[in-house]
Nucleic acid binder design. Structure first.
Lengths: 204, 204
DNA sequence: ACCTGAACACCGTTCAAGT
DNA sequence: ACCTGAACACCGTTCAAGT
């Protein structure tokens, strides 16, 4: 009867992962022990090892199940071939970070750090961010083709990566220092690199 | 004779911190034990505790001594009141990340993560990044005043923060995925948000 | 004054023993 | 088939004992 066992196993894995995420939010990634997770989900330490290979495997499961970005919105914006500028697409990208079903930003930053020394966790995060990059690239394609008809694909690819790098910076800064809101960030990017200096029309 | 003792103490602290950084580069922050550091510098674990309060205190010392950014270049660019655009100042800012006297970028990212759960380490990093932000803000002032005479100070402050957030993103992405060089990043930022779409003049 | 290394409480991991 | 909890090697930290 493997089906019953599999369902039970999936439920156990979700139960443990959800409990682990609650402890992670409270105590930080490196200060969370398996004993705390076992207490939180009402099981023993051994039960965690029945359902996961080890602590790193549990971390990968959490990253796979809970870190997946909602990319439907970006895909939706791309439909119909409407021309959306990078600035217009950055807005939903940054807003998606604050989705309440997502782990808090500091937890994500701590997983980035773990991925630097855990190749398998790195692969999980790389796959997720690449899916996000692909959606952004598709959504940018009409704008990119308008900029340079022949090189639209290459431009969309480069700019999609760049928008994600800028979003990574926002996530890190928001977690560590909280200098700005997403709206202030976008406004300042346009003021710094945008077409016309802000305030010129008002001042002169 | 406290002077002899103090000099000896400083030398010991530097000896231990340099050894610790070598192990950090090899093994990552969380996989480096005090036993490894003691072996690397030829002392015992107890000797580390003679010279540092604990492991977190050693980490703070490393961050203070070795993470200080070279801001003289930015200050030099600001002298004489020359107008430098954000894009022009981003170049030396990103280049400074690859100074060979600085710890590698992945080590810095791991310290960011540690700072999220260590308020004293967070204060050290916040002080350093704020000094960098101040230099950038001064260097941006002529440009900002040119954009909007009355609001130059506020604009320079906002844009300095924004450039640092974008640099944070570059550091994180470079450490994790290495998508782009600094030059490619700047080019793509200008293509995405800059005044004229690239390639228009060439394409017609 | 400075250093050592054994001792302590904890961690992740394993595994014989239970149900 | 699933779970428990004691055992193990390790970690950061302390401290009596050395020089």
């Amino acid at each position: 009867m493997p089906r019953v066992t599999d369902a039970h196993r999936q439920a156990r894995r979700d139960q443990i992962a959800q409990a682990a995420l609650r402890v992670l939010k409270r105590n930080g990634v490196s200060d969370t022990s398996l004993a705390q997770i076992a207490d939180e989900c009402g099981l023993s330490i051994g039960a965690i090892y029945v359902n996961f290979e080890n602590k790193a495997d549990l971390a990968r499961f959490i990253a796979t199940r809970l870190f997946a970005w909602r990319i439907e919105e970006l895909d939706g914006l791309a439909e119909g071939g409407a021309v959306r500028t990078p600035a217009e697409l950055m807005r939903p990208l940054l807003a998606s970070m604050f989705d309440e079903n997502r782990p808090p930003l500091p937890v994500i930053l701590q997983f980035w750090s773990k991925a630097l020394v855990d190749p398998e966790l790195h692969a999980v995060l790389a796959e997720q961010v690449d899916a996000l990059r692909g959606s952004l690239e598709r959504a940018l394609r009409p704008w990119a083709d308008g900029c340079s008809a022949g090189e639209g694909a290459a431009l969309a690819s480069r700019v999609a990566q760049t928008c994600l790098i800028m979003a990574q910076g926002f996530l890190a800064n928001r977690s560590l220092f909280g200098w700005m809101s997403a709206e202030q960030y976008l406004d300042a990017v346009l003021a710094a690199f945008g077409p016309a200096p802000l305030g010129v029309s008002a001042k002169g």
